[in-house]
């Protein structure tokens, strides 16, 4: 027993994070980031490895969170304390997994119907109050509480635009005459929404890219032994070599990008 404990301790000792590991981390992060970015030039094995690693690491992270923050405290610990009522939701939860075994996949229906019934029961009153009644109320209230003509104009514009958009989505009546006009105006309001959304999407995507570039810049520092530079250089060398070999093989024909 003591031998096993010692073995475990020395195994766990291997996982101590030292300053050296922190520097190495910079290399790993820069390497994985650049491998994924390399797809922008063209598909390559480094990208594929990083892509598959991402799937595994992502699942691994979720697994350990569920293990230590849900299954252990919510199932294992109560069972150890003799609270057997947790067996009901546990079995319902585990029933979901039977979906992968065709012969007994019907058992999973117990878990699914339990989740779906509960979700549906909650969603109805919420949709009615939050996204239906409150929104209609929100379109009327500016007329009551308006503090000036500009407020009143904006309130009227929201209400008018909102009704026009509803006409656009309203397919039960044929779109002609006044209905068609209203639905055409509705399209303009939708376009303003989509335009603003596109503008914001540009900022959002660039922000994410900034985040990665900022990290790459950090790892290009001397304290990380120029990890970014070296990894980038190696990858460029790979692509040059690949191109040379490729051009020998099939006369420089490269798949169109």
């Amino acid at each position: 027993m003591e031998f096993l404990a010692n073995l475990w301790n020395s195994f766990a000792g291997l996982f101590t994070v030292t300053p050296g590991w922190m520097t190495f981390g910079g290399w790993v992060a820069a390497g994985l980031t650049i491998c994924l970015f390399s797809f922008l030039y063209k598909d390559n094995p480094f990208f594929k490895v990083a892509e598959h690693l991402y799937l595994g690491v992502g699942m691994g992270w979720l697994f350990q969170v569920y293990l230590f923050q849900t299954w252990k405290p919510k199932v294992y610990a109560p069972l150890m304390e003799g609270q057997f009522s947790v067996l009901i939701p546990t079995l319902l939860g585990l029933s979901l997994v039977t979906q992968f075994f065709p012969r007994i996949s019907w058992i999973s229906r117990y878990g699914f119907t339990f989740i779906m019934g509960y979700g549906s029961g909650l969603v109805i009153p919420m949709e009615i109050s939050t996204n239906f009644l409150r929104q209609i109320g929100g379109s009327i209230s500016p007329f009551i509480g308006a503090t000036g003509p500009w407020d009143l104009f904006n309130g009227a514009l929201v209400a008018f635009g909102f009704i026009c958009v509803l006409f656009y989505f309203f397919f039960s009546v044929e779109h002609k005459g006044a209905v068609k006009k209203a639905s055409n105006i509705g399209i303009y309001f939708l376009m303003l929404y989509f335009g603003a959304a596109f503008g914001n999407t540009v900022m959002g995507r660039f922000s994410l890219l900034y985040g990665r570039f900022d990290d790459l810049y950090k790892y290009s520092d001397a304290s990380y032994f120029y990890a970014t530079h070296v990894v980038l250089g190696l990858l460029v060398a790979y692509f040059v070599l690949d191109k040379l070999v490729l051009s020998k093989k099939n006369g420089g024909q490269e798949p169109a990008h």
């Binding site: 929404y193 603003a196 959304a197 914001n200 999407t201 900022m203 959002g204 995507r205 922000s207």
Partner: peptide, 8 residues
């Protein structure tokens, strides 16, 4: 929220 979902 993210910029992408902000207008919503």
């Amino acid at each position: 929220v993210t910029a992408v979902s902000q207008p919503g």
